[in-house]
Nucleic acid binder design. Sequence first.
DNA 1: TTTCTTGCAAAGACTTTGCATCCAT
DNA 2: ATGGATGCAAAGTCTTTGCAAGAAA
Lengths: 145, 145
Amino acid sequence: MKIKLLHEKLNNYLTKNRLKSTKQRDIIVETFFETQGEHVKIEELLELVRKKNPQIGYATVYRTLMLLVDAGVAHQRHFHDGQSRFEIESAHHHDHLICTECGKIVEFENNTIEEIQEKVAKKNKYNLTGHKLELYGVCEDCQKK
Amino acid sequence: MKIKLLHEKLNNYLTKNRLKSTKQRDIIVETFFETQGEHVKIEELLELVRKKNPQIGYATVYRTLMLLVDAGVAHQRHFHDGQSRFEIESAHHHDHLICTECGKIVEFENNTIEEIQEKVAKKNKYNLTGHKLELYGVCEDCQKK
DNA sequence: TTTCTTGCAAAGACTTTGCATCCAT
DNA sequence: ATGGATGCAAAGTCTTTGCAAGAAA
């Protein structure tokens, strides 16, 4: 999704819920949107944000990320290391292939897997609402080492 | 895997590492092995264990579970609720279908998904070491409510 | 003004660990 | 007697929240 659309979506959400826009919030949102393709942890985003304004606190970044998730412009992920990571909402669903050595993350889509998942759910009479698929391995670069 | 084999595997591990068997450890292991097919949390196992010996502490259950994982007779899982759950090591790899309402867990195997995962990894030149697939949905019983 | 936001610090929820004591070998 | 095991309490991690003070609208 284009950044412009994300801003629109977010602004709609803010208006609809009578929320305000502030200096801090603007910086955090702007910085988060600059992480296109990454999967930032709260601490990482905080660090980036503080380069622009060192006064901003952890809790504000945390709450802004929650806001972005609620507004539907960010996705929260929990990979194997236990910390939350956030990525920009993208048009297409995708899963992740993660290097256990360097942490590099490749995103991929696979319709066949999605279809089988639906079948498995149906067979067990579950009404599927979501799923989580993560592949862990060692990337090419790390294999060389 | 049969309980008997698990005991054997565990005993080998204990011997190999010069670890001792104790009253507490025996009770915890026995109780854990009785949870066949379940995915117990530490607290849950502690409660079961305390029915047999109320003096046993949380840390002992915790450490025993770590031991079982190290010995290869238990698997540690992290589902969506953030708490660790433990299941008995089973011969066949399987994934989980989890009810978000009541927490019921169905285990399933699907070779096609496994194969595709390998392909995805290969295509990206990752050396696959593990994966995590969880389906979330609402089970039949909970749909009725 | 009124209501939302911020930043700090404190509280939670779990998981891990230090240590004196206890127990199996 | 040794060295591992236990229980408790304390320390870690990360995530959430209460609150007084500060900004939007």
